[in-house]
Nucleic acid binder design. Structure first.
Length: 265
DNA sequence: AGCCAGGGTCTGC
DNA sequence: GCAGACCATGGC
């Protein structure tokens, strides 16, 4: 039996876990969502107007998982702010169950290095193989996301079975800079987004878009605003070339509504 | 078959 | 500073 996590107001597992911000969650045949975070494999489901979690103890639910799902933030209030722009309001209502996950910084950074010039199904495949080959066996045939320390010991050729293509050398460069301490991801949480972005962009293969994804999904900077091809398209075709100004202080969250909305059109 | 994908680097102007 | 070729791979 699962442990109560939260009421599912402004929280849809399907929207949150399959909106392109994380790549290791999968819906099972019963409509529950299974994923591996850290060294835990958990299963989440919605029932009776609430979200429940299996595979986690009471203490981790109240701390880690509460933070992971960003449960202290009032998404309803943000959606109301979106109403200042009629198109953004439509997008926010369409994706009103999305929450921005607070993922592990290294996993977020590495995942979005892999994401560049790539499509979501293949991103998931590459990450699956990366975890299976280089992650830690956490039992049951499941594997954790490999640490930067582990990957830093490899050469790009060692990733050939992962089929990450030209991104392999970028993964290794990122792993080495993080594991050596040259880039302290935890410290970037407390810095302003622009400073942190510049640091992240010292990594080969990390430009503004990947850096913003790491900032938003791994480092808690909700004002970071990844501009991928879909968002550029939406900004031009839906907003006349200018991102809605009413959402600037939570642009990352608004961006996720727009990304989900335009891909669903 | 060919275009595209949650882009970035490198080169040449 | 900015455009254009190029990068690996596979989904559609």
């Amino acid at each position: 039996m699962g442990i109560f996590l939260v009421e599912n107001k402004n929280f849809s597992l399907a929207q949150t876990l399959d909106c392109g911000q994380a790549f290791r969650w999968r819906e099972d045949e019963n409509g529950a969502w299974c994923g591996i975070v850290g060294k835990s494999r958990v299963r989440l489901y919605e029932a009776d107007g609430a979200v429940f979690i299996e595979g986690a103890d009471e203490k981790s639910v109240n701390c880690f998982w509460h933070s992971y799902f960003d449960l202290d933030r009032d998404y309803g209030a943000l959606i109301k702010k979106c109403a200042a722009d009629p198109i953004l309001m439509r997008a926010a209502e369409y994706g009103s169950g999305i929450r921005i996950l607070k993922q592990e910084p290294w996993e977020a950074l590495c995942s979005f290095i892999i994401s560049q010039n790539n499509n979501i199904p293949r991103i998931k495949g590459i990450i699956d193989r990366l975890c299976t080959v280089f992650g830690e066996d956490i039992g049951g045939g499941f594997y954790s996301f490999p640490t930067a320390e582990r990957l830093a010991l490899l050469e790009a050729e060692d990733l050939s079975d992962i089929r990450a293509g030209f991104r392999a050398k970028y993964i290794i460069d990122a792993a080495r800079r993080v594991s050596s301490g040259e880039i302290d991801l935890e410290a970037l949480k407390a810095q302003d987004a622009d400073t942190a972005r510049q640091t992240l962009m010292k990594i080969k293969g990390v430009g503004p878009k990947v850096a913003d994804c790491a900032l938003l999904y791994g480092l808690g900077h909700i004002e970071a605003f990844p501009k991928d091809v879909w968002i550029k398209r939406a900004t031009n075709e839906l907003f006349g070339g200018t991102f809605p100004q009413c959402a600037l202080d939570f642009a990352g969250i608004a961006q996720q509504y727009i990304f989900y909305y335009i891909r669903g059109l």
